[in-house]
Computed example of a mutant assay.
Amino acid sequence: MIKTIYLAGGCFWGVQHYFDQFDGIVKTTVGYANGNTENPVYKDVKKGLTGHAETLEIQYDDTVISLPKILDLYFDIIDPVSINQQGEDIGISYRTGIYYVDNEDLDTIQTKYIEIQNEYDSNLAVELKPLRNFFNAEEYHQKYLDKNPGAYCHIPASKFKKGL
């Protein structure tokens, strides 16, 4: 069955490039989630004017890749205790978050969240909330690192099988 989860992990370029390499990921779209305005644009999101987080919409085939596996992959590329920052990217739009659309996924997400929390002395900074809204980012952001090899990415190159 095709399911959907939304993950905010700092700059969405690298998060998309990372998840696109795994079997079972059917489609990814970068966009802006859980903010306070309709139809935000990048320059306003980046300045922190909209309250949105740069987020990746992931559509996946749960018969090929499980939600717990996706969450393991996600936690492998973020600093889960960093508040409003991943790598060199700083600001509310770069916060981390898991935004779900299927209430049946909440138990799975909470179980993984608690497992990860137990690895840290500090509280996790990863938001765990239902998705309130999601707006696709401008076309030039979609598959950005495929179109612009060598562009900045906060995720270490070693995490990519396909390279940057």
Rank of each mutant, 00 (worst) to 15 (best):
P130N: 15
I98A: 00
D44M: 09
D61C: 02
I92W: 13
D76W: 10
D89F: 13
K47V: 12
T96M: 12
P80Q: 13
T96D: 08
S66A: 13
I114Q: 03
L124A: 08
S66K: 10
Y100W: 12
T96P: 05
R95Q: 10
Y94K: 03
S122I: 05
F75D: 02
L128H: 06
E119W: 06
K46Q: 07
K129Q: 12
E54D: 09
E88V: 14
N123M: 09
I116L: 06
Y74W: 02
P80R: 03
G48K: 02
Y120D: 10
P80S: 02
Q85Y: 05
R132K: 15
N118M: 10
N84R: 12
N118L: 12
Y100H: 04
G87H: 05
T111V: 10
I98H: 05
I109S: 02
E57S: 04
L56K: 00
D72V: 05
I70R: 02
D89V: 04
P130Q: 06
P80N: 10
L106V: 11
Q59H: 15
T108F: 01
N118D: 04
K46G: 03
L56R: 11
T63C: 14
D76Y: 06
D105T: 08
Q86G: 09
D72Q: 15
I109D: 11
L128A: 04
L106E: 10
N123C: 07
Y94F: 01
Q86K: 13
P68Q: 00
E104M: 08
K112E: 06
D72I: 10
D72Y: 11
G97H: 13
Q86D: 05
Y120H: 11
P68M: 00
K129N: 14
L131Q: 08
I58C: 01
G51W: 00
N84W: 15
E104C: 12
T50K: 11
D44V: 03
I77A: 01
T63Q: 15
E115P: 10
V45W: 01
E115F: 07
P68H: 05
E57H: 15
K47T: 08
V101S: 10
D61P: 11
L56V: 00
T50G: 10
K129D: 13
V64T: 06
E115W: 07
E127F: 02
E119K: 11
Q110M: 10
V81R: 01
N118H: 06
L49P: 07
T108C: 11
Q86I: 07
Y94D: 07
D44Y: 07
I65L: 00
L128D: 15
